[in-house]
Design a binder for these strands. Structure first.
Lengths: 138, 138
DNA sequence: TATAAACCCTATAAAAATTATAGACTAAAT
DNA sequence: ATTTAGTCTATAATTTTTATAGGGTTTATA
């Protein structure tokens, strides 16, 4: 399951995607719309900005706005950013690799091999679905 | 990512799958082989038995053994049993459904729709990979 | 230029979930 | 009888997630 962080990030991105004509959107507006803690959401939006998905403007009249096209924001990226690895095991993670302590020889581990396949196939799914798909379903 | 519980369960099932000629296998042997806490593994094997994957024999000469064919043990089942939902959000879970608090109208939620698709496609992957696939990779 | 609005940033607290341990109990073999 | 090995439930320890707090910086505008 996705963490609330990632779930909230998706809601925020969706909200921002739906309000692209406005110059900026307030954290507060997104938080209220979805009943999310303002402060918690703040941290999430900050991460999305640092990762290059959002722009922001400080001061009065400020707020957040999308700077990427919805079609260029795949689920895989959002999940990796906020939740970490997509792979089911650290030993097959492309971005967060770590060997598994209980596995003596990764090269001959059937679990490792199958999980690498699962990772590849899962990745295909999550790279194909983008914010645009979400917006179309709203 | 899978919990250690699920990961250990997969290692245990693999071990049991590789030792099907023996009548039974000791918890201790599996625990030692993979450096897992005996007691922790005990609870996991108990769950696998209650779910119908393993049989057990008490007393001297006892232990665990596989009672299902490896090809009839898909990853999806093991994961659901020990980790819970495969869906990325509770609102699209088939086995552990719960509405999402921050979503006002699930019927018009783009996230919900996309995640239901992701769930279906992910499920296809995890239902297709079985213990047999793991054993073949060993 | 003072003021209020709004994001920036880091630290920490609270809660929940995961991981691990403990110990008494039952069953079976010898 | 004794030893071996799984059964079961409770609880402790640890880690992760979720949430909060509060001072800082920037900007619009009166």
């Amino acid at each position: 399951m996705l963490s609330k962080k990632t779930k909230y990030a998706l809601h925020a991105l969706t909200y921002l995607g739906k309000h692209r004509e406005n110059k900026t959107v307030l954290i507060q507006d997104i938080a209220e719309e979805h009943g999310i803690s303002h402060k918690f959401l703040e941290n999430i939006l900050l991460e999305l900005r640092k990762a290059g998905y959002l722009g922001s403007k400080k001061g009065k009249g400020g707020g957040y706005y999308l700077i990427k096209e919805p079609k260029d924001i795949p689920l895989s990226r959002v999940i990796r950013l906020l939740d970490g690895p997509i792979a089911l095991l650290p030993c097959v993670s492309l971005n967060y690799y770590e060997p598994c302590a209980e596995c003596k020889d990764q090269a001959h581990c059937g679990i490792n091999k199958v999980m690498a396949q699962v990772r590849d196939e899962t990745l295909k799914i999550l790279e194909n679905k983008t914010l645009e798909d979400i917006l179309q379903g709203e």
